[in-house]
Write a protein that binds this DNA or RNA. Structure first.
Lengths: 155, 155
DNA sequence: GTAATGATACTCGGATAAATACTGTCCGAGTAACGAGGG
DNA sequence: CCCTCGTTACTCGGACAGTATTTATCCGAGTATCATTAC
């Protein structure tokens, strides 16, 4: 169970975008330089956030990416699932119905207990991430962070 | 974030082993036939459980695998982490210290807020799985299950 | 009848290929800004 | 001085290789069992 490395990229990039002044945006090239990341691949990931409705993208000069919603409405869960997909990590393939020990279909009306427990754990993970918004993250940064971020991003 | 397919295999196999009479064991070939799984590869995964201390393996005739501890002491977490590894899915590579926007080392004494939140979520997932033992799973099965399992496994 | 011994068959164990998904890269389509020119 | 228009340069967007992890497989080392044989 491993999250893509790009998860860290987009989490930090989203935090960065949340520090911009309203109406402003940052290009993929700027963000890539800011964090020393491969630009084109980062673009691909940010596009996934656009498809998920977390960011909006504008082309042309002074274009780039910005948050599609207020920072308080964007949770870490939405960002993570945008790049990694929302599919549960444990996929029940119903092996209890295969092989020599196959259970009759009548005994499988209820979902497999193991699958249910794994789904519960996944839900606990999701709830934990859904409880944290970008606004919460910004609140834990020093008050001087946004100005610094904007400055370094432009230069 | 995806768990190996073999996770389902070992969870079901462990549940099966927990239904055997004390002192009895099942071979990888028996378990593979019981669930219609690729035998050699299943062996490899069960071996991982042995290395993790969840199962014990005995060679020779009437050998095979059995639980290394009482079912009540084996949690789903130990089984899952045995096959998938215990490494957290989110790996912080400290990109905040790289690139044009690199933070000075003095500001990075505390762990990154994002990494901390991701670690919290992972811990929530682990706690959820650690709260369920094989005994709990057996308790939710019909009372006739163990006898049926033993019968079909031998045949 | 009992115990020791040798052969046997069954078990796990590690080293070896194929497949899938993540990672990284390139070039093209589209668009907003900018500057020049005319009114 | 203001508006229109053409150019420009910058942006995202999708199609194309490289690499690592997962999946699957094979054959060899080791051992408890079973039959045989001697006592």
């Amino acid at each position: 169970m491993k999250l893509p490395v790009s998860t860290e990229w987009v989490l930090h990039c989203a935090t960065t975008l949340a520090q911009l002044e309203p109406g402003d945006s940052a290009s993929a090239a700027q963000l890539a330089a800011y964090y020393d990341l491969p630009g084109p691949y980062l673009t691909k990931q940010l596009k996934a956030l656009v498809n998920a409705g977390v960011l909006t993208a504008a082309t042309g000069p002074r274009g780039g990416f910005r948050l599609a919603h207020p920072a308080a409405e964007i949770t870490l869960l939405r960002i993570v699932e945008a790049v990694d997909g929302a599919a549960p990590p444990y996929e029940c393939r119903e092996i209890r119905q295969a092989g020599k020990g196959a259970l009759p279909a009548a005994d499988c009306r209820e979902t497999c207990v193991l699958a249910a427990k794994m789904a519960e754990a996944h839900q606990a993970w999701r709830s934990s991430l859904d409880a944290v918004s970008l606004a919460d993250i910004l609140g834990s940064l020093p008050a001087t962070a946004p100005a610094r971020t904007r400055s370094k991003l432009k230069g």
